[in-house]
Structure formats: structure tokens, C-alpha cells
Design a protein around this nucleic acid. Structure first.
Length: 491
RNA sequence: CGGGGCGUGGCUCAGUCCGGUUAGAGUACCUGGUUUGGGACCAGGGGGUCGCAGGUUCGAAUCCUGCCGCCCCGACCA
């Protein structure tokens, strides 16, 4: 059997790239830095969307939609925000094309210059807060809990499928509250939702924490994040939740009348996850044979591959699997019966492994004779012969078991790749070697953080929320520190 | 924007240094047959502006000049 994808340990980024393409998730588009998400990849994203959307609505949020274009002037209202995004904005300057009389083709009509340029949103804080000014008058209008599913554009210098593309799909929540405490609670609630989603659906353990000043979102008072560890020992920021304080309220003049009749600025939050989660899902669990999808997010959870020579054989196989298909569908399992005669069984086995389908059932003449199914699990590659009458319950339990197994495998990996270091030598050799999560003391200054980054490429991923206070000395300067922070090389 | 590499059927690439039959292979695709419990085999077939433009030459994928595009490493970042 020829290898469909490169070996994971030999060249991780080549492996990742080929896997994304071969599994039919996405490909590079002719448009610079953009990607085409193919049906199978989009089906996974849709499952993520549905799950997250439900969690948002259960916590009182509503969806809305705001414009793609943002007038340039909106950006100048929050100084640190514009500074953070200025270098990566796509700008619309004209609104019309015309025929090129000289060279043929079309040119931008110089007469159609916009009076004010429009920025293609890199994030929507500014347009949304501009609306909030009109939506919020009194404490009765609060809290305002809005989410939007949208695309955004950031003109990145270098792109990578799912992990960093010039255009990406995401969800951005933007909330306004009467009190600082309530906004803080919202920020943390959404971080918890992201962490729960990562753990329970993506089977991905994450570290919750707060960003240092260097890594903070432009315009935020505090940026909280979840950090995940990939199989090559690099960290990936999988989601962020920002406490905005009153920064945007002040910039866009969003005030409300309190019960006491006083005018006050509202308190804001914003939070988002993107198609980058797809990258995390792929990199965290996949192996040299392809994707390994957690059952809770797999578009196809169970596939049936019939093994047959003649039409009659397929007919009797269909008859045998029909009750199983009905029973599993009744239990909300996504099951597919691949009766195509254009591909051989072996080809299908390899294909569904590449696509990460958690459970595969093979049914042939031998099974029909014995009244059995051959049931194979993607995560461990184990095969079992199961009586047809017991198959439904077996598969339902197996899906649960696979979900748990993928999760605990990722938990163990993260544990093995987590080290606590106290000396600069250890720090350098750990980061330069196998990488992983490195907990070390830090003196709390941006200067030290920058120096460590310049020397080792490692950054502070976050100051973990659940870290125990611990007296120590900064691994770089030796200055006093009160708790360890999480270092790693990152994507 | 700096440093490196590469543009040849859909995909992966050989051929380029040292110019010379009709430009090749693997894979994918189409047809027929044999196959079908782990990416089948045999036979036949279709598909190429050799990135673009110009130049040198009897002759250019190959040499020269200019341009364009892509990938990798950095800086930047969800």
C-alpha cells in the first residue's frame, strides 16, 4: 500500500499540509493567502458551529450580523485597537471598474474613488460598538449579548491552511454590561464554554489563562485564552475571550442611564473562535494514516463497507444492514452505507481512515453466513467480530469509548510534554529540544519576555488561571516571581 | 520586506550543468477483460502554450535578458 501522506515525525508541516489536502478538507485558492474549504472540511466546521451556537444560546446570547466593510474613521476612535490591526488590513478604495481602452481587459475606474476608504473587517468591535451607541440607552437595555458568525480578513504575510489564512471564518461575541463585575464574569464564562467545547467535543485538553501585556488583544484590558498542545510540541491558541473594560464604550460614546438616573459608560467583552480550531483538531489527533476525528464532531460517525461481487450479494448485504442503519439513525448517529461499485473495499478502507471516520463496519458473504459484522475503530485500528443482534449497542458504546480514548490520549500526551524548569540552561534545552509546555518563573516584565523570545522563540502562552502561588526566581533574570507561567513555541 | 528553493499532462517529479529523434516516468483519468475480506492486474487509449515575453542559434524545456507566480526559513499574527 502506497503511503497517502508523508510521515508525521519526519516533516510535521509537510505532513499537516498534505493531510489537509488528501483528506479533502481544504486547499489553497488562487487568491493570495485564502483557502477553499471543501465539503468534508466544511461539514466538520458546521458541526463545530452547531455545537457552539447551542452553547451560546443556552447562556442567553443571540445572533446578529454586521457589515463586512468598516469606514476608516471608525478605526481611529480606539487608538491601541487601530495600532494592533493597521498593518494587516485590506482596504477598499474604489467602487467601479471600466474597460481598458488601451490594453484591453478591465481597470479600476479612477473616477470612482471612494470619499472615505472602507476597511474589510479584521474584527468587528468598531462597527458593532457604533451600533451599540444607538441600541443602549438605559440599564433596561443591558446586558446586550450578541454573537455573529462571519468571515474576517487579516492580510497576513505568511499563511497556512486553517491555522492562518488571509480570510477566515469565525464567531465573534460582543457584549455590553452595566457593571465591571458582570463583564468580567461574562469574559470568564465564555472562556469556560470554549474550554468545555475543546475538551468534550474536540477531545482536546486546554490550559486556561490570561495573556501578558505583550500578547493582549489590541483594545482589551485583559485577554483570556485557551492554549492547546500539538503533536510536534508547539502550542496553539485555540480561543480568546477579552475583557474590554470601558475602552470601546468610551471610544464610541456608549452610555446608559442607571437606576439612579446617572449616565455611565457600559462595560464590554468580546470573544471568538475560528476555523483555526479545525487546524487544532487535525494536528492534535491525526496519525500517519490520516485524520482521527472525535465521534462528537465527525460528519460521518459510522461507515458500512459492503464486500460483494454480484448485485445479489449487495442486495442481501443491504438487507442485513438495513435494521442497523435504522436503529443507529434513530439514536442520532450519522451513518453512511457506501454501496458504490466503482471502488474496491480496500480502497474504501484506506479512504475512510484518511478521513478519520471513527467506526467502520465491513460486511461480506462470510458475515452473512455467521450473522456477524466486522467492526473496526479508527483510533486504535482494532477490529472485532460482533453478532448482528448486538451491533447497535456495541457501536453506541464504541463511539463513546473512542471519544474518551482520543481525549485521554491527548491528555497523556500533554502531561508527558509538560515540564517544570528552574534554570536557564534547562529552559533552553527543553524549548530547543522536544518543546512542549514549559512552566517557569518569570519576573513579570515585557523586557524579559522579549529577550526570552528573541533567544529561544518561546513566548509566554498564558499566565494559567489555576496555577498555585509559588515563590521562585525568574528563569532568565533571577528576579523574584510569585507563580510559574506557561511558556512554549507557538503557531 | 530580507535569505533560500522551485515553475515540465490533473497531481508528484526526471530531463536543464554540457542545446540535437516525435518531451519522459509514476500516479490519476477513459475503454475492454480478469478481479473484489486492506489503496488489484493485464492490454489498449486520451491528455503538454515545458510560467510569460523577448533574444542568441540551422535548431531552445535546456543558453542570455526582463517580467510573473508559487513554496520554505525569518519579521507579523486567531
Amino acid at each position: 500500500m502506497s503511503k497517502a501522506i508523508p510521515n508525521r515525525s519526519e516533516d510535521y508541516s509537510l505532513w499537516y499540509n498534505e493531510l489537509v489536502k488528501k483528506a479533502g478538507l481544504a486547499e489553497n485558492s488562487p487568491v493570495r493567502g485564502c483557502m477553499v474549504i471543501k465539503p468534508y472540511g466544511f461539514a466538520i466546521w458546521e458541526k463545530m458551529q452547531q455545537t457552539l451556537d447551542k452553547m451560546f444560546k443556552e447562556t442567553g446570547h443571540q445572533n446578529a450580523y454586521f457589515p463586512l466593510f468598516i469606514p476608516k474613521s471608525f478605526f481611529s476612535k480606539e487608538a491601541s485597537h487601530v495600532e494592533g490591526f493597521a498593518k494587516e488590513c485590506a482596504v477598499v478604495t474604489h467602487y467601479r471598474l471600466k474597460n481598458d481602452e488601451v490594453n484591453g481587459g478591465v481597470i479600476v475606474d479612477p473616477d470612482a474613488k471612494l470619499e472615505e476608504e472602507l476597511i474589510v473587517r479584521p474584527t468587528s468591535e468598531t462597527v458593532i460598538w457604533d451600533s451599540y451607541k444607538n441600541w443602549i440607552q438605559s440599564y433596561r437595555d443591558l446586558p446586550l449579548l450578541i454573537n455573529q458568525w462571519a468571515n474576517v480578513v487579516r492580510w497576513e504575510m505568511r499563511t497556512r491552511l486553517f491555522l492562518r489564512t488571509a480570510e477566515f471564518l469565525w464567531q465573534e461575541g460582543h457584549t455590553a454590561h452595566a457593571t465591571e463585575k458582570e463583564a468580567q464574569e461574562e469574559t470568564k464564562q465564555m472562556l469556560d464554554i470554549y474550554a468545555t467545547f475543546a475538551e468534550q467535543y474536540m477531545a482536546l485538553p486546554v490550559i486556561k489563562g490570561v495573556k501578558t501585556e505583550n500578547e493582549r488583544f489590541a483594545g482589551a484590558v485583559d485577554t483570556y485564552c485557551i492554549e492547546a498542545l500539538m503533536q510536534d510540541g508547539k502550542a496553539l491558541q485555540a480561543g480568546t475571550s477579552h475583557f474590554l473594560g470601558q475602552n470601546f464604550a468610551k471610544a464610541f460614546d456608549v452610555k446608559f442611564a442607571t437606576r439612579e438616573g446617572k449616565d455611565e459608560y457600559v462595560w464590554g467583552t468580546s470573544w471568538g473562535v475560528s476555523t483555526r480550531l479545525m487546524g487544532a483538531l487535525i494536528m492534535a489527533h491525526s496519525d500517519d494514516d490520516g485524520l482521527v476525528l472525535p465521534p462528537n464532531l465527525a460528519p460521518i460517525q459510522v461507515v458500512i463497507v459492503p464486500i460483494f461481487r454480484k448485485e445479489e450479494e449487495l442486495a442481501s448485504i443491504s438487507e442485513a444492514v438495513d435494521p442497523l442503519i435504522k436503529a443507529l439513525r434513530a439514536r442520532n448517529i450519522d451513518i453512511q452505507f457506501d454501496k458504490r461499485d466503482t471502488h474496491k473495499p480496500g480502497w474504501k478502507f484506506a479512504e475512510y481512515e484518511l478521513k478519520g471516520v471513527p467506526v467502520r463496519i465491513a460486511v461480506g458473504p462470510k458475515d452473512l453466513e455467521k450473522g456477524t459484522f466486522e467492526i473496526a475503530r479508527r483510533d486504535t485500528k482494532e477490529k472485532s467480530i460482533i453478532q448482528q443482534s448486538e451491533a447497535t449497542e456495541y457501536i453506541i458504546n464504541l463511539l463513546k469509548d473512542i471519544q474518551e480514548n482520543i481525549h485521554s490520549k491527548a491528555v497523556n500526551f500533554q502531561k508527558e510534554m509538560t515540564t517544570f524548569v528552574d534554570t536557564w540552561e534547562e529552559f533552553k534545552s527543553q524549548i530547543g529540544g522536544e518543546g512542549g509546555f514549559v512552566y517557569a518563573h518569570w519576573d513579570g516584565t515585557s523586557e524579559t519576555e522579549d529577550k526570552i523570545k528573541n533567544e529561544t522563540k518561546a513566548t509566554i502562552r498564558c499566565i494559567p488561571l489555576d496555577a498555585q502561588p509559588e515563590e521562585g526566581k525568574c528563569v532568565f533574570t533571577g528576579n523574584p516571581s510569585k507563580q510559574r507561567v506557561l511558556f512554549a513555541k507557538s503557531y
